[in-house]
Amino acid sequence: MSRLNKGFARLINPGVVLNPELNQKIVAFEAMAAERSDLDVELSQLRKQQDDTEDNLAEALAEDEFQCNLRGQQFTGPNDDELQTILKNHLGGIIDKLAKKYERIVYLDADIRKLKGTIEKAIIVANEESAAAASM
């Protein structure tokens, strides 16, 4: 049994054989859990990319100010509208990807909880049916 499946294995009484449909649900649960784990990795990578982009933008603005000071010029950084445009151009795609990943996680977590409950109930039924059959 796989690592995630061990959580369900503890619920199964010795000698109980699960039907193919329940085994398929467990496989589906494991696939969803793996997807969830992959999404966590992707989120971490996107957050790092966002941090790096923000750092690069801040460094670029600081360098512009530094160069103006070296030349004895007054630094007039971007106004609010220009800054919004710069941030949107450099961070907009990353933020959109993050939003999509988070949205997928919300729905996936709900599906995982629902499927886990269904599997646990089916295991209880299988345990009861096996115990009833053994007592006859």
Results as ranks from 00 to 15, higher is better:
Ala99Cys: 00
Asn89Trp: 03
Asp109Leu: 00
Asp80Ala: 15
Lys97Asn: 14
Glu103Asp: 12
Glu120Ile: 09
Lys88Cys: 01
Glu120Lys: 15
Thr118Arg: 12
Leu108Ile: 08
Asp81Glu: 13
Asp80Pro: 05
Ala122Glu: 15
Gly117His: 07
Asp80Trp: 05
Lys88Arg: 00
Gly117Asn: 07
Glu82Lys: 03
Leu98Gly: 01
Glu120His: 08
Val106Thr: 15
Asp81Thr: 09
Thr85Pro: 02
Lys116Arg: 13
Ile86Cys: 13
Thr118Asp: 15
Ile95Thr: 13
Ile123Phe: 02
Gly117Cys: 10
Asp109Ile: 02
Gly93Asp: 13
Thr85Cys: 03
Tyr102Lys: 13
Gly92Phe: 04
Gly93Val: 08
Asn79Phe: 02
Asp96Ile: 03
Leu108Asp: 04
Leu108Glu: 09
Ile94Asp: 09
Val106Phe: 05
Glu120Arg: 12
Arg104Asn: 15
Glu120Ala: 14
Ile112Val: 05
Lys100Phe: 02
His90Leu: 07
Leu108Val: 05
Leu98Thr: 00
Thr85Leu: 13
Thr118Ser: 15
Asp80Met: 12
Leu91Pro: 07
Ile105Asp: 11
Arg104Asp: 09
Leu115Ala: 04
Leu108Gln: 10
Thr85Gln: 14
Ala122Tyr: 06
Leu98Val: 01
Thr118His: 06
Leu108Ala: 07
Leu115Pro: 03
Ile95His: 08
Asp111Met: 03
Gly117Arg: 09
Ile86Glu: 10
Ile86Lys: 12
Glu103Ile: 03
Ile94Thr: 13
Ala122Thr: 06
Tyr102Val: 10
Lys101Glu: 06
Ile86Gly: 11
Leu91Val: 10
Thr85Ala: 14
Ala110His: 07
Lys116Phe: 11
Leu115Val: 02
Lys101Ile: 13
Val106Ser: 08
Lys97Met: 10
Gly92Gln: 10
Ala110Asp: 09
Leu108Arg: 06
Ile119Asp: 06
Glu120Asp: 12
Ala110Leu: 12
Asp96Val: 04
Leu91Asp: 06
Arg113Thr: 10
Ile123Pro: 02
Asp96His: 05
Arg113Val: 09
Lys100Arg: 14
